[in-house]
Computed example of a mutant assay.
Amino acid sequence: MSLYDDAVLVLKGYEDQEELRQAYLDHLEAHPDGMWKACTAGHITASALVIDPEQGRVLLTLHKKLRMWLQMGGHCEPEDTDLEGAALREAMEESGIQQGLTLIPGGPVRLDRHPIPPPCHCHFDVQYAVLAPPGAVQEISEESLDLRWFAYEEVAGVADESVVRLLEATRARL
């Protein structure tokens, strides 16, 4: 199965955010290349919130280009076979935690469509959450200016509403 086919199946099985979910499916139907960065009409991205529920904290990255505290995530790559794998790969790459990250079961936690600077128009982000292993040690990647753990109650003070909603949805699922 292709990454495109996996994305369609994941989105068809996602039961929340009906209108937005349908917009993602419509986009993919209209753009067979809608999984890839080269699709300037917009493209699917995969992200993951790294969470440590035992200590009540999340790991956020200060994105180098956007200069915003965000969850780990980014573009799908040709070697990705499914969205879950793409989200987990991004979490590992951007957090530096190479062992022990595990996806929270149940598929995507949220969807978030947001505009991005030209030449593209928007990201259709499929958002997952991953549990950090006990004692996880992060390491800054080349894509980040900083990488830091934040207590749940600190997130609203440093990140935008998208990250806050992702944290809320993740906590509701735990």
Score class of each variant (00 low, 15 high):
residue 137 V to K: 10
residue 81 T to G: 15
residue 96 G to Q: 05
residue 69 W to I: 00
residue 87 A to E: 06
residue 111 L to P: 15
residue 102 T to G: 07
residue 3 L to T: 06
residue 91 A to S: 04
residue 146 D to H: 15
residue 14 Y to T: 00
residue 122 C to P: 01
residue 104 I to N: 08
residue 32 P to L: 04
residue 174 L to W: 14
residue 125 D to W: 07
residue 60 L to E: 00
residue 107 G to C: 06
residue 78 P to F: 08
residue 125 D to S: 15
residue 79 E to W: 04
residue 137 V to E: 09
residue 119 P to W: 03
residue 144 S to G: 13
residue 43 H to K: 12
residue 5 D to M: 10
residue 29 E to S: 13
residue 30 A to C: 02
residue 174 L to G: 15
residue 170 T to L: 07
residue 172 A to C: 10
residue 72 M to A: 12
residue 128 Y to K: 03
residue 9 L to W: 02
residue 161 E to V: 03
residue 68 M to I: 05
residue 151 A to H: 12
residue 67 R to P: 15
residue 88 L to N: 06
residue 111 L to D: 13
residue 57 R to P: 11
residue 23 A to T: 06
residue 35 M to E: 13
residue 79 E to V: 09
residue 121 H to W: 08
residue 82 D to I: 03
residue 169 A to D: 15
residue 13 G to A: 00
residue 93 E to D: 13
residue 153 E to W: 06
residue 63 H to T: 12
residue 83 L to S: 11
residue 147 L to H: 13
residue 132 A to V: 01
residue 77 E to S: 14
residue 76 C to A: 13
residue 22 Q to S: 08
residue 133 P to V: 00
residue 78 P to G: 06
residue 33 D to A: 07
residue 9 L to H: 03
residue 22 Q to F: 01
residue 20 L to C: 04
residue 92 M to R: 13
residue 103 L to P: 10
residue 47 S to L: 07
residue 50 V to G: 02
residue 168 E to N: 14
residue 123 H to R: 10
residue 21 R to S: 05
